[in-house]
Amino acid sequence: MAPTKYRYWGADMSLYYVQKLLYNLNRDEKLQKAYFADQDSVLQDYRLDEEEITALKKPDIGMLYILGVNGQILMHYAAMCGYAWPDYIQAMRDALAEHGNVRAGLYATTDGKGAV
């Protein structure tokens, strides 16, 4: 799989808010509790599109990776959703096989041949 070009520009607005949500969840245990009790009430505070909302709610960690969520934020959301480390890596690999490379951001894959 060809490495994506290094992009200097930021994420689009809606990907920005996916990451903002996960950043806030990572920082705030009260928000985590509120989110897992009633996702819609938290999600309405963020500007998100349908694809992102679906991936967040499922949760589809692999799809969030493909959408371009920064791995440093996503790995904690994966852990929050109960993914063990190897399962988190596998979810990204499965999504790559299904959807092709990451669509935005810096956490694209090069060859996917790292060791778990």
Partner: peptide, 10 residues
């Protein structure tokens, strides 16, 4: 390093 990607460990 390529942390938090499928290349983690490379």
């Amino acid at each position: 390093h390529w942390p938090a990607t499928p290349d983690s460990g490379k």
